[in-house]
Design a binder for these strands. Structure first.
Lengths: 233, 233
DNA sequence: CGTAGGTTTGACTGATCTCAAGTTTGGTGG
DNA sequence: CCACCAAACTTGAGATCAGTCAAACCTACG
């Protein structure tokens, strides 16, 4: 299952076998379920095997901000290797299958296998880079660009994760979710999606999206995948 | 100099001596200088010794978004330990002194001293947590809250870094900088600062800020320092 | 088929931006 | 030490992007 982990790392030898010996528990949840809630103490790390999830935080007034989307191969909750208190929630957007492993086990593994530690550390650094781009997206781009950028990132990561062509895919999230990811309202997201379609940048049918012209779409989205650092997960 | 590094880590033994043996170069730059520019390949890591800096990214249209502020004790550019291509710029906001060390040296150190690796890794995880909070701040809080939150975070981190009381301090950044950090315009930041002062939450004299009532200010800012994870640097 | 969640559309509102003109501040050179 | 200048800050008035509220329409699912 989790040799997806290996793909992400650059340098791995026969700590592959150690990886295989990690005690993993395969699990499944329904859409809408939480893997983690803000404020909880977590002692588990997860690797997504199928389906989509998101991380989010909320203001005290109850507004929700999604801070990242996650898909098959993503390692979630890595921060609980070293930080116990969750500063955010993780929720399944679709039915989800994932592998769970105790943080303590993973920590042992990491301590004895520097190459694995490096790969995971690199993953957290890339996470940071993606967060920076999100701050930029939400802080300095207009509504159309924000939505377009989110679509481009999703398409690009989906492809990198081996989940299919970036030109044609099914969105796992609602327009409410897109709104919470882009700092907009669901109403306005709807209008921006309609606008992108009207401009011929995308074609939509329910949750299905086709990106008609990747070049023009990237331009409209101000999307440059460099910040993904050739994200392998 | 850099025993600030040690403070940040939880578990350190006599890799302290290894830390001291790191080849460091003390340097100084004027306000406005760049330590790093987006797109460059960096092979150096920095620890700030005095002064303030910020990371930022820009849209293709030229809009700037500051994604973090940094102060004495902060380790900057840690990501270039494992990622070569810079996805953002780092600029001095004030005159700055810092220690520079080749990423390769630091990498060697980290490989032979797991406790140091863990401390630095934890630092990058906390960075991630702060970025998540910024996404929330810029995405889901109104202008007054954003500015107030930025002030609270700055005050709290400043105190944790041993730079003085959170109730009274000098801002190192212009209102333009605050605007670029909060996703607002300088004009509106100015109005929000005036509003916070009018409400008796802060008192201002030029760049000097006093937080009159920390409790009320935190409430107005929707600020809860949990996401800083007792940030030691 | 009834219902709930999701999407779409319209009309109106308002927070924040833009543009523009002052004012203050801090640094610099005479 | 003063005059000047550029940068930063402040204030006002009008424009606009995105939000709010509300209703209608889908559509998947029980």
């Amino acid at each position: 299952m989790t040799r997806k982990l290996e793909r992400l790392g650059t340098l791995n030898e026969q700590d592959r076998s150690a990886l295989r010996d990690l005690p993993l528990t395969a699990r499944r949840t329904a859409a809408g379920q939480h893997l983690l809630r803000e404020g909880e103490d977590s002692t588990t790390c997860y690797v997504l095997l199928s389906g989509y999830a998101c991380r989010y935080k909320t203001t005290s007034a109850g507004a929700r901000q999604i801070v990242s989307f996650h898909m098959a191969g993503d390692i979630v909750d890595l921060q609980h290797l070293l930080l116990s208190r969750a500063d955010h929630s993780i929720q399944a957007m679709t039915e989800l299958t994932f592998a769970a492993t105790p943080a303590a086990e993973l920590k042992k593994l990491v301590q004895s296998h520097p190459a694995i530690a490096e790969a995971l550390w690199r993953d957290t650094l890339i996470d940071g880079s993606v967060y920076r781009e999100w701050v930029l997206n939400v802080g300095r781009r207009d509504a159309k660009q924000r939505v377009a950028h989110m679509l481009c990132e999703f398409a690009a990561r989906r492809e990198k994760a081996g989940l299919g062509s970036p030109a044609s895919f099914e969105l796992p999230m609602t327009q409410d979710d897109i709104a919470d990811a882009t700092g907009l309202t669901n109403v306005h997201v709807n209008r921006m999606l309609a606008l992108l379609a009207a401009e011929g940048l995308i074609a939509r049918d329910k949750r299905h999206v086709e990106i008609e012209d990747w070049e023009r779409m990237c331009e409209a989205a101000d999307f440059d995948p460099a910040y993904l650092h050739a994200l392998a997960a």
